[in-house]
């Protein structure tokens, strides 16, 4: 369908392969695991890992980066990574399944993660500690829900913002309590 020469595989590694590999690394697979799953040795994987982002930088049409996001979201279906899971308790638990099937759950955690950063926490680590969801799975969920959320915003902007504000208030309260208040709490109008 596409004539974009920047989509040609790099050392036999297609953009689908590369995107899924990135998602899996984000979920805790090592470079060795990923190279093995793709059937290449490390020097070959590392060149592809360097050159695919170069292709994205060179592509003024943003086609590569768009497809990357799409394939990233389909990483769980990629045949070369079928059944491959990181050796951590976090991968593949109940919440990981839920964040990909329950949009509200994803949206709430997305807000929670961002608020965590505002309170000096590593938000990705907080989600992993609290819910056992890896960053890779979180990003897979993000790309799965992306389009639907976009539609929700168009259909009911106010409803969307008020839900987001609700989550924000909830987690601000949580993290504020945990750090013993904000520095300007005593200043009132």
């Amino acid at each position: 369908m596409s004539e974009n020469p920047l989509l040609a595989p790099i050392h036999g590694i297609t953009l689908e392969d590369y995107s899924a590999a990135c998602a899996k690394i984000g979920s805790g697979l090592s470079e060795d695991d990923v190279a093995k799953a793709l059937g290449v040795e490390l020097p070959v994987w590392q060149e592809a890992n360097l050159l695919w982002p170069e292709r994205m930088k060179q592509d003024a049409s943003f086609e590569i980066v768009t497809l990357f996001g799409q394939y990233f979201g389909q990483a769980d279906q990629h045949p070369k990574f079928n059944g491959l899971k990181a050796d951590t308790s976090a991968a593949g638990n109940e919440n990981t399944v839920r964040i990909k099937s329950d949009k509200d759950f994803y949206q709430e955690l997305e807000v929670a993660r961002n608020v965590a950063y505002e309170y000096g926490l590593d938000g990705a680590q907080w989600v992993a500690d609290k819910y056992g969801i890896t960053l890779g799975d979180f990003q897979i969920a993000a790309s799965l829900w992306n389009e639907q959320i976009h539609q929700d915003i168009q259909a009911d902007f106010q409803g969307y913002t008020s839900r987001q504000d609700g989550y924000k208030t909830k987690y601000q309260q949580l993290f504020t309590d945990a750090q013993g208040g904000n520095v300007a709490d005593d200043i009132q109008f």
Partner: peptide, 13 residues
């Protein structure tokens, strides 16, 4: 993370 945490307080204000 420390920088983000500090900036968070300013955003809170």
């Amino acid at each position: 993370h420390m920088l983000l945490g500090l900036m968070g307080q300013f955003n809170n204000m």
